[in-house]
Amino acid sequence: MKDFYRAINWNKLEDQIDKATWEKLTEQFWLDTRIPLSNDLPDWRKFDDTNREVVAHVFGGLTLLDTVQSQDGMDSLMKDIRTQHERAVLNNIQFMESVHAKSYSSIFSTLNTPREIEDIFDWTHTNKYLQYKANKIANIYQTGTPLEKKVASVFLETFLFYSGFYTPLYWLGHNKLANVGEIIKLILRDESVHGTYIGYKFQLGFNELDEEQQSKLLSWVYELLYDLYDNEEKYTHELYDAVGWTEKVLAFLRYNANKALMNLGFDALFPDTVDDVDPVVMNGISTSTSNHDFFSQVGNGYLLGDVEPMSDEDYNIGL
């Protein structure tokens, strides 16, 4: 039992980045209930069964990964905080990961029947590639070192989510499922901050290691990425072969794997750049906020802070 508790003092900071990140995240606060998803039903009804299945499965996968992050990831990272303020930031991130997971259920309840929703979750719980990456990340959270846990978190936030994000961004770029796309843009903006912040905290710890320890950890990082990418490649084929998007999705994944490495302070592994990514998908990311009905339901324009279009630089917010 503790005999002394220290009150958190936001007027005395050990790391200014904690406060900057807290302010960024609270400015971006949002809830799925404010997005009029039912407005996407006319688009959804025009989709064929194959495209509907792709949408359903990618959101099932995203739900699982956000569940891992909210239930296991942030709890794990909180055991190794450097400052009291870092715990507050991680609490915020944990809550928003739960918001993300709930948002996918809101999409399901709007677009799918109860039986279809059941089938989606059955698929999510039995897909071997999806379960592999969820278990791989969760095992690191449970048994890894503090720095290994941060690597797992950044790889999840900045890389593994993106096989799922491709689909709604693709349709958003084609002016379809615009409100679903609004939710994904909000999630993307959160994840860009999460990945950059946790990557920054990783770099602080990594720079305290000696040269031999750094070399050993760096080898582990790249081995993990190779393993995850190998699995992600198989997962992507299973998701996208039927619609012919596989190669474009893989380029998007490699581009974001490089972004994850950059968040950790390391060099890119893959040759892919933004020029290799489908411009329609990048346009989906970059589209400025949509304003819906001002008096009732709104898109991401209702946020407390100023909303700006996302750009390539937004993957690294300059913490």
Rank of each mutant, 00 (worst) to 15 (best):
V221R: 02
Y222T: 15
Q213G: 15
G199T: 01
Y132I: 02
D122C: 04
L186M: 11
P168G: 01
S192L: 06
T124A: 14
Q213I: 04
E148N: 00
Y226I: 06
L169M: 15
Y170K: 12
S153W: 07
H194Q: 03
P114N: 10
Y129P: 03
G181R: 04
T110V: 02
K185D: 02
V154H: 13
L186H: 00
T167Q: 03
E191H: 12
T167R: 01
L186P: 01
Y170L: 13
Q131H: 07
G164D: 06
W220C: 00
P114Y: 03
G181C: 10
D227H: 14
Q203G: 10
V151S: 06
Q213E: 15
N179T: 02
K149H: 10
Y166S: 01
V193R: 02
T143R: 12
T158Q: 14
E182L: 04
W220I: 08
N112P: 00
R115E: 12
F161A: 07
I120F: 08
K185I: 14
L228I: 11
K102Q: 14
Y170G: 00
L228N: 04
K133C: 07
L204W: 00
S153R: 01
G205R: 02
A134K: 04
A138G: 02
F206V: 05
I107S: 04
K149T: 11
S103L: 00
N207S: 12
Y166T: 02
L218R: 15
L169I: 03
T196D: 15
F206Q: 10
P146V: 15
A101R: 05
K201M: 13
V154M: 13
L186C: 03
F121K: 12
R189I: 05
W220R: 11
K176N: 10
K136W: 13
I187K: 04
L111H: 06
Y141S: 05
K136V: 05
K128Q: 15
S215N: 03
Q131E: 07
Q203H: 07
T196C: 09
G173T: 00
N179F: 07
Q142S: 10
N135V: 00
E148G: 04
K185A: 11
F202C: 04
A134C: 01
S219G: 11
S163W: 03
L147I: 08
A138Y: 00
V154E: 04
T143W: 09
A101G: 13
L160Y: 04
E212L: 11
